[in-house]
Amino acid sequence: MSSSNILKNISVDCVVFGYERNALRVLLRQEFINYRGRIYEEWKLPGNHVLREETTDETAVRILREQSGIAEDVYLKQLSVFSDVNRLKLRDRDYKWKKEQGVGDNRVVTVAYYSLVNISDIDASHLYNVARWHKVSEVKELIYDHKDILDTALMQLREDLLNKPILFELLPELFTLTELQTLYEIILDTSFDKRNFRRKISNMKYLIPSGKRQENVSHKPAMLYLFDRKIYEKTKQDRFDFSV
């Protein structure tokens, strides 16, 4: 890729959320930064610069495809623009490493997106360089302002899921109501009374019993449900309010 085709002052960063083993996770890329004779292990969000012929939406899709093997039909939403004049200079070692890459500028404005994926659908062999799923609750520090971007994405996710059935993007095709409740509780950082939760989701016309039950479990097998997207598309004008 020719450097002349890269917009050095505009980038896109993607917060990719997944759910696995009762934890909300985020996909992070690993970088090794040589600074003053010491190698630092750093983590960052998947991202890249915008090409001259691309919209930022197209750049976000390209990042997901090239750096994680994620298909284009996943949930993807523009989050915000991060334009602090010192966003690259929060730590001197990160800034100097960026300059050594030969791409970018003293000032880079980034457009952030967040995406929701089913981790089981991701082929780990397609992950760009060293990329791993981290528990969101355990992420304390990232390169540049990427921790601020992650925190903003988490707040937006919490707001969006109260009005849209987007959590189904994180679940397998078939799931139990207990799994659905657990996911809501983890993301909202709260707990629901089981009876009240079942009453709330009874308004979801698109939550359909599959007729199947769990297999190979030590307890009474629970009913498995599925999200019917066609029913949702027909009824989405009826705003669903999951606020507590």
Rank of each mutant, 00 (worst) to 15 (best):
I143D: 00
I208F: 12
E72W: 06
F17V: 05
V61Y: 03
F227C: 08
L226D: 00
Q30E: 15
Y225C: 08
R21Y: 13
V217R: 04
I201M: 04
V16R: 00
F227I: 04
Y95W: 14
V130Q: 05
I231Y: 05
A60T: 01
I39W: 04
E179N: 10
I63R: 02
R87P: 02
K194T: 13
V61C: 03
Y113V: 00
E179W: 12
I122N: 07
A153F: 01
E58C: 04
R65D: 14
V74A: 01
N34Q: 11
V103G: 01
Y225D: 07
H146W: 06
R213H: 15
A60P: 03
K8I: 06
E169P: 03
L157C: 04
E72L: 06
D84N: 10
Y206S: 14
D105C: 05
Y114D: 01
Y128D: 08
N22L: 08
L180Q: 00
E179D: 13
Q214M: 14
R87F: 13
D73S: 14
E138I: 09
Y144N: 10
L76T: 00
I70L: 05
F242C: 00
M155N: 10
F175Y: 10
I231E: 14
N196A: 11
I231T: 05
L24N: 07
R25E: 12
N129Q: 12
V139A: 07
K140S: 13
R87L: 15
E173F: 13
K164A: 04
E138A: 15
R239C: 10
Y19S: 02
E66P: 01
V85P: 03
D73H: 12
I6C: 05
W133K: 08
D123C: 11
L170G: 08
V74H: 04
A71I: 10
Y184G: 00
Y225E: 02
N5F: 10
D13Y: 03
R52E: 13
W97D: 11
Y232P: 04
A153G: 09
E58S: 15
K135W: 05
E72S: 12
I143F: 02
L127N: 05
Y19E: 04
A124V: 09
E100R: 12
R87W: 09
R52H: 08
S68Y: 09
N22I: 04
N118T: 00
L174G: 00
T178G: 00
K89N: 05
Q181H: 09
I33W: 09
L167S: 05
A23G: 03
R87V: 09
A60Q: 02
R213S: 03
T190Y: 10
Q101E: 12
R198Q: 11
R25V: 14
V217K: 09
G69P: 12
E53K: 12
C14L: 13
R65G: 06
S3E: 14
